[in-house]
């Protein structure tokens, strides 16, 4: 098992380098650059100012040199400074991380708490009204654009509070850490967490249901049934454990992708998180910041996958880890 984990960690190296090369290339394929973005405030860009800006940001160096310095920096955990703000990239990211993580964790909790019991129930009561209702709720969750849901939810909160009290209310738009002001913090995080969590739980619920259905038809479950094992025991010990395999994959993948899902939600609620930072960095063509952010997501992704694969091996003895 240790060897497996060490192996997998070593395998992460080519993934990281590959991702580094890809993001480096992609960013430079985007026409224009950060200096054009920065200097275009009045509608035209002064040519001298542009040249000065290029020199200032080291963009007059050769592409290969830029790539090597990026890789070298990454290997030594020196991510450089944001080309846009001039602040260290680590500072830019760490400032945004708490709110994004908070919402990701809250959304995951919401998702798991709703999805696994309801998904299992839905499978056990296949083709009954319970099943239909649960599936409808789940599918509606997948079908609704989360930003639209967020916009509508926000407007409903505003309109309802306006109608009830005469003064419209909306969640705070500036972040306060949980330990400083828990009420303010949570009143900010709860709506986005529910919006994201609804979709997330819907996806997970469907996967739980279909995996459960699959497992319930497996021979060994029927054997268990034939042996006269208690229904609950069959579900918990055999069916759920095996059905969880794809569910765990999905939760893992979805968590790693939550950052991506947050991109749009953070815009709707004006959350100063990683997702919004990502969009800003790409649109500002801030190479260093985008590169660091991609590498962060890749690292999270690699780790999540490792954890998922280990769980796989543990949950399904049919898979060998070699």
């Amino acid at each position: 098992m240790y060897r497996y984990i060490v192996n997998r960690l070593l395998l992460a190296v080519p993934t990281l380098v590959g991702a580094a090369a890809l993001v480096f290339l992609l960013m430079r394929l985007i026409p224009g650059d950060i200096c054009l973005v920065r200097l275009s405030g009045g509608g035209s860009v002064d040519a001298d100012a542009l040249a000065a800006c290029h020199a200032d940001l080291g963009m007059d160096r050769s592409v290969l040199l830029q790539f090597l310095s990026f890789l070298g920096g990454f290997a030594t955990f020196d991510f450089g400074t944001s080309m846009w703000s001039g602040k260290p990239v680590s500072y830019e990211i760490l400032t945004r991380l708490p709110i994004s993580l908070e919402i990701a964790v809250l959304a995951t909790v919401v998702a798991i708490a709703i999805a696994i019991p309801l998904g299992t129930l839905s499978a056990l009561r296949q083709n009954t009204w319970t099943d239909f209702v649960i599936r409808t709720v789940a599918i509606a969750g997948i079908a609704t654009p989360s930003f639209w849901l967020g916009i509508i939810a926000l407007i409903i909160v505003l309109d309802v509070t306006s109608a009830v009290s005469g003064t419209p209310w909306m969640p705070p738009i500036d972040y306060v850490p949980l330990w400083q002001d828990p009420v303010r913090n949570l009143s900010m995080a709860i709506l986005p967490a529910l919006t994201v969590g609804y979709r997330y739980s819907a996806v997970t619920m469907r996967m739980t249901r279909s995996a459960m259905l699959e497992v319930l038809r497996e021979d060994y479950i029927r054997t268990a049934r034939a042996k006269g094992l208690v229904h609950r025991l069959i579900i918990n010990r055999h069916a759920l454990k095996n059905a969880l395999l794809p569910v765990v994959t999905l939760i893992g993948i979805e968590f790693a992708f939550l950052i991506g899902g947050l991109v749009v939600t953070e815009q709707v609620f004006n959350l100063n998180g990683i997702g919004r930072l990502f969009v800003q960095a790409v649109q500002n063509q801030d190479y260093t910041l985008t590169q660091a952010l991609v590498m962060l997501v890749v690292a999270v992704f690699v780790l999540t996958n490792l954890v998922v694969d280990i769980l796989y091996a543990w949950l399904d003895p049919r898979i060998r880890y070699a």
């Binding site: 916009i151 926000l154 407007i155 505003l158 509070t161 306006s162 003064t167 419209p168 209310w169 909306m170 705070p172 738009i173 500036d174 815009q267 709707v268 609620f269 004006n270 100063n272």
Partner: peptide
């Protein structure tokens, strides 16, 4: 307070957050 999205800014004025 920085907010690039117009809807957020209008909502904030509505709710007197700004």
């Amino acid at each position: 307070i920085f907010a690039a999205k117009q809807a957020v800014r209008v909502d904030a004025i509505r709710a007197d957050r700004a």
